[in-house]
Simulated assay, not measured.
Amino acid sequence: MKLVYVFDAYCGWSHGFSGTLREVVSRHPGLATEVVSGGLFTGQRRVPIREFGYVQGANAQIAELTGAEFGDAYERLIADGSFVMDSDAAALGVAALRQMAPDRAAELATAVQDAFYVDGRSLSDAATYRTVAQTAGLDADAVVAAFEAPGTQAAAHADFRRAAELGVTGFPTLLAVDGDSVTPLAYGRATADEVDERLAAH
């Protein structure tokens, strides 16, 4: 059995779930955790953030319910409403980092979310992944090269297909996958204790 975490790096509720994910992973060191990018803002949904009028209100609610931090640098980044959240680029970055350290995928996914929501860094910028890699003690040049490599695009799109095959329609979703058996552990938000209870019942 393994955990499968389907999220989008540009999803505020996924950012809110980061603390729970880190806690669940630390409690179950023997369980492999697969991280899948869901592709929230792709195609026609790749538009300036001002077109999503609910962002600030939703973020306030996420912070209140989960304790997640939304940094001043992030607020400045989105202040004029022109910033475009591109989940294709974010999925590329997650795939590039995951390639370097697959066993640390959950930790790196939450670090990518912190880079955007706390540090106000664009997830379309290779320099963001250089910084995340350096902080994580990974080969930053190799991560940037992977981010820019044509083959990584295939890995990102394979993630989107995987999310669809798992039947995931919203983010974040945490699943227990055992062969063909898929058990939902969390959708949207949950505490580590709630996830543990569902895991034990599984």
Rank of each mutant, 00 (worst) to 15 (best):
V4N: 14
V4E: 14
Y5Q: 05
Y5G: 10
V6T: 11
V6Y: 13
Y10D: 06
S18W: 01
S18Y: 05
V25S: 05
R27D: 01
R27S: 03
H28W: 05
P29Q: 05
G30T: 04
L31S: 09
T33Y: 11
T33W: 09
V35K: 14
V36T: 09
G38I: 05
G39W: 10
L40T: 05
I49E: 11
A58F: 13
I62W: 05
E64R: 15
L65F: 10
T66R: 02
A68E: 00
E69A: 13
E69R: 15
F70P: 02
F70Q: 01
F70I: 00
G71V: 00
G71W: 02
E75Y: 06
L77K: 04
S82I: 00
S82H: 07
F83K: 06
M85C: 09
D86M: 04
D86E: 08
D88I: 07
D88A: 13
A90S: 15
G93I: 00
V94F: 15
A95E: 08
Q99I: 02
P102Y: 01
D103T: 13
A106N: 06
E107Y: 10
E107F: 09
E107N: 09
T110F: 05
A111V: 03
V112P: 14
V112I: 15
Q113H: 14
Q113L: 12
D114K: 15
A115G: 07
F116D: 09
Y117R: 01
Y117S: 01
V118Y: 05
G120W: 08
S122Q: 04
L123A: 03
A126F: 01
R130K: 03
R130C: 03
T131G: 13
V132G: 04
A133P: 10
A133Q: 04
Q134K: 13
L138A: 02
D139H: 03
D139A: 10
A140G: 02
D141E: 12
D141N: 10
D141M: 02
A142S: 07
A149Q: 01
A149C: 04
G151P: 06
T152D: 01
T152A: 03
H157C: 02
H157W: 13
A158L: 05
D159W: 04
D159P: 07
F160G: 05
A163Q: 08
A163S: 14
L166R: 06
G167V: 02
G167E: 04
F171K: 08
P172S: 05
T173C: 09
L175E: 10
L175P: 11
P184T: 07
P184C: 03
A186E: 02
Y187D: 14
Y187F: 14
R189P: 08
T191D: 03
A192Y: 06
E194G: 12
V195L: 10
R198T: 07
H202G: 15
H202W: 15
